[in-house]
């Protein structure tokens, strides 16, 4: 499938595109925009709400111009009231709408945790299944240019701990479009976390509507020596690491997790059964992060397959620093992933 392929850079993608004229290329942000537009077009219960979604920037381009097409009644700017507006969107969802709520930075979500954790995640269970909460909460991880501690967090683990929520983190334009549609029609609260560094990434995206199933990871590269499970932007770093390691005779299998909750444990276990080694590359911190959960699952259900202790590549245990010198040291990438794989291979 051409759209399951991952392109590390624009040149690589443009080369692929020139070789297959039938396929359309689209940036991640435009894939999100197209998905949203098609949802608004086809379904009157869908509406979009968030701070500044109808401004000239349009959430880094991902909602740009939608208000002109669908009106501000359905593409709604919101006051700076993250908890209140999250509750408003949840209430609208319970009352039969399918809101797409946008928090421009993951860092702003903590203000709305009461509504997400105490309300959205509980509302169906607490009332014996009499209602549901079909809401999508989109949010973006920032990075770089001194974004610093309050504009660059990867808080996905706050949500993977909560029954009642689903958490998706698309890495490719194809998945961004398909997962957004799947999330809107899932019927449950879905925390949809994007990464700013993916916004300009190009990939093949069909123009018609389609869904990518929630709960399914995907193997981006086959390999026999180690499994790298990567999240969001780290998928690209993992692919680059796999290239580096190939020259050293180490073949990596790269899994793009795509959904963190529910976790696609079968795919991961199957891969580890073949490779015997496991490395997790996450955009967030290590302690009780998704890597901890993946390792726990593999140990619980696939212990015998492990040839060596798993490795994790995460952010250091500190908030994000602003200085370019420190920032550079803060973020792990292909080098750190490759080193982790080498360690795993060396251990056994």
């Amino acid at each position: 499938m051409p759209w399951t392929k991952v392109y590390s850079n624009k040149a690589e993608f443009e080369k692929a595109l020139s070789e297959n004229k039938d396929l359309r290329g689209l940036a991640y942000k435009d894939a999100l925009l197209e998905a949203t537009s098609q949802l608004l077009e086809a379904d009157e219960t869908v509406f979009v709400i968030g701070e500044g979604i109808d401004d000239a920037g349009g959430v880094f381009g991902s909602t740009r111009g939608l208000h002109l097409k669908f009106g501000r009644e359905r593409v709604m700017d919101s006051p700076l009231a993250e908890n209140g507006i999250t509750g408003v969107a949840i209430g609208a969802a319970v009352a039969g709408m399918r809101p797409i709520l946008v928090h421009m930075r993951v860092d702003f979500i903590p203000l709305s945790l009461d509504q997400i954790i105490n309300h959205a995640a509980k509302w169906r269970y607490m009332f014996g299944g009499k209602v549901s909460v079909p809401i999508v909460i989109r949010s973006m991880i920032g990075r770089g240019w001194g974004s610093a501690a309050q504009h660059s967090q990867s808080l996905q683990s706050l949500f993977t701990n909560i029954p009642g929520l689903k958490v998706v983190m698309p890495a490719t334009p194809y998945d961004a479009k398909g997962l957004l549609r799947a999330s809107v029609y899932d019927g449950n609260p879905v925390v949809f976390i994007e990464h700013r560094w993916l916004y300009e990434h190009m990939g093949h995206v069909p123009s018609e509507p389609y869904t990518v199933p929630i709960g399914k990871a995907i193997i981006r590269r086959k390999g026999s020596d180690a499994t790298i499970v990567a999240v969001s932007y780290m998928v690209y770093e993992a692919m680059s690491a796999a290239e580096i390691l190939k020259d050293e005779g180490i073949e990596c299998e790269v899994i793009d997790l795509r959904t963190l909750k529910p976790l696609d444990a079968p795919l991961i276990l199957g891969s580890v059964a073949r490779t015997g080694r496991l490395v997790i590359a996450d955009t967030g911190w290590k302690e009780t992060g998704i890597g901890a959960e993946i390792i726990a699952r593999v140990v619980e259900d696939g212990f015998g397959a492990l040839k060596s202790a798993p490795e994790r590549v995460n952010l250091p245990e500190a908030p994000t620093p602003a200085s370019p010198a420190l920032e550079k040291a803060y973020y792990p990438g292909k080098i750190e992933i490759a080193a982790a794989v080498r360690r795993a291979v060396k251990k056994g």
Partner: peptide, 13 residues
Amino acid sequence: PMGVGAALASSIR
């Protein structure tokens, strides 16, 4: 907030 959201839903509809 949820009550206001339900009202928003009826207003949109």
